[in-house]
Nucleic acid binder design. Structure first.
Lengths: 346, 346
DNA sequence: CTGAAAGCGCTAACAA
DNA sequence: TTGTTAGCGCTTTCAG
């Protein structure tokens, strides 16, 4: 049974290349992969391969060598900004190294064992786990399976982690508000859906509280409003804040997406940002500029690249423990137009 | 050489299952794939497979059968809303059928031959081509290779296409404005980047012009402002419109993303939407609601599903011509707050 | 309906 | 450095 090549002639295989170059298949194989081969034979093989438009069949390579040039990435959901950026960046880095990326969308499985472990083992050489509830377990399962893995934005597993310091980033946002003179600052927090890692949300809350404490401002529990993560949740949280007897002068939204929801509610309510209220977000989402939102940026693309890079390095070492430590990328404040000092009246 | 399974015991293979079930490997294979096997033996095989947590190795299946349960999707860029949604929807549909999706990001290759054709042939059983400049050629190349393929949002190749009627959708948007009394309507058009299909932008322009003609409104060439596709382009186009001597009463943006850019510029300029100017978009981007943007919605997810479904059907037929015709999905007007009748003064 | 045998295209031992 | 010889795990003829 051949590949479903109805149209053209059967694609050239390594034997065809070898025959045309008048060498043995193994020499052809070595030449193509850059092994030890005499210059003239290598030359002949490469020429023959080019002429026949030879493309190695990954399935055959994988079957015989055990390595398939494919890495998997497990995400709770595939269509959300953060995950999209991580996946795209990782895919580009991997592709440059000749690897394919297979995306596994987690669905809303609980925090149990990595649901796709069996599949992963049979399909990929290494895996990236992105901010899902099961990252911790997942890392362990994969380790037992002998599959190199790294976590992006998940639990701080140390050497196998890539991410930013969420607590520090949140504190940065709040300090910016403080510096401008705000004293009554509320936080819009997110409730991660099932399957999502909750470490980031916890850390951002902690950063918020810490920055206030440092400034000697007592924590007011009703100043943290928590709603389901996302634009709608941000809107709901803002409505809650609006319904209170006294508006804060500034709001820190855990994520830009929640800030977007808050901004919409404020506009509808006839309030002007930043005149009546300042809003700051976290992430630097692709739409943050369109909303003119001041925010704390994290480079998501760099996280994807770093994760892919770590894996590539480990794969090059034969899958064995990499000497590289985990990567913590910096965040930085991006000032736009949604924040200004509180009005004198306050 | 075995798979890099350092940790646990070597994963069970078909022979292990066969041995435990006390049948031959071929019988085990048939039983697992639902072939003709006596009930009791099938039972035994299935039980054994479950017990051993047997997972077939895709590379081996592909190598021996020629079919690999993988489809490829080629996109000009992977991180933009439209493509993300198509890919995610296609991936889900395929996954339910046991197929994997491999994403090929086109980069900014010219409109030439499908650049990844050789790779596709060796890696996938079928392919989805999404709105790239090379869709037309690509379809031909793949056809010659004997690989089933469908186009999403690309040239209207008829039977192999999934998409919406862009011209009609644009006309719908403009008629909505017309019905409300607008007579001076401008269009913000996009210039597709290299590698992108330009059919959609052309069709939307045509729909804009047609709707105006139908209403007996003479075409004013300076009322179509074209800028690079995207938020920034939309902003630039709006600035251009603002710099003219007389503002239109309404603007139709070719895509929601361009509308977002226009909205930001308008707000910065101190103009109120919809009081001073109405804005309508096209797409129903995930952020359209947050911008309170009236728009013409297209279901991108359905397009991804439809494409995957068409391919699955064809694959089930052994890759041969499907009797199914192409799919044209409907668009629908989504009314939000960015449009209202023109002010009396105009 | 079942089993034995022969590969799929490639890599990796081994011996030369 | 090179060629020869065995498979990798599975499907698929082909006899029985």
């Amino acid at each position: 049974m051949t590949l479903p090549t109805v149209g053209g002639p059967r694609p050239a295989g390594l034997v065809d290349v070898a025959r045309l170059a008048r060498v043995s298949p193994s020499t052809a194989s070595r030449a193509i992969r850059g092994g030890a081969v005499s210059p003239d034979r290598r030359e002949r093989v490469l020429r023959a391969a080019a002429e026949l438009a030879y493309v190695p069949l990954p399935a055959a390579v994988r079957l015989s060598s055990g390595r398939g040039r494919t890495v998997g990435i497990v995400v709770p959901t595939a269509a959300r900004w953060f995950f999209v950026e991580v996946v795209a960046a990782a895919a580009r880095t991997l592709r440059e190294a000749g690897y394919d990326l297979l995306v596994f969308e987690g669905g809303d499985h609980g925090p149990g064992r990595l649901p796709v472990a069996g599949e992963l083992r049979s399909k990929v050489d290494a895996v990236v786990l992105v901010a899902s509830a099961g990252c911790g377990d997942g890392l362990a399962v994969l380790h037992d399976l002998g599959i190199p893995a790294v976590v992006v934005g998940g639990p701080s597993a140390g050497a196998d982690r890539v991410g930013v310091d969420d607590e520090d980033g949140a504190a940065t946002a709040v300090r910016h508000l403080l510096l401008l003179g705000h004293r009554d600052i509320a936080m819009i927090a997110g409730q991660p859906g099932p399957g999502f890692h909750r470490g980031a949300t916890d850390a951002r809350r902690a950063g918020f509280s810490r920055a206030l404490e440092e400034a000697g401002i007592p924590a007011a529990p009703d100043r943290i409003v928590s709603r389901p993560w996302g634009v709608a949740g941000g809107a709901a949280a803002m409505e809650q804040l609006l319904s209170g007897d006294r508006l804060p002068t500034a709001v820190f939204a855990e994520s830009d997406e929640m800030a977007f929801g808050a901004l919409r509610v404020l506009r509808r309510a006839g309030l002007d940002v930043p005149r009546d209220l300042s809003v700051i977000g976290f992430d630097d989402h692709e739409m943050a500029e369109a909303f003119d939102l001041t925010t704390v940026a994290q480079s998501v693309a760099e996280q994807g690249e770093a994760a892919a890079g770590l894996l590539l390095e480990r794969l090059a070492r034969g899958g064995h423990a990499a000497p590289t430590a985990g990567v913590t990328l910096p965040t930085r404040l991006v000032v736009r137009g949604s924040v200004r000092p509180p009005r004198a009246g306050h």
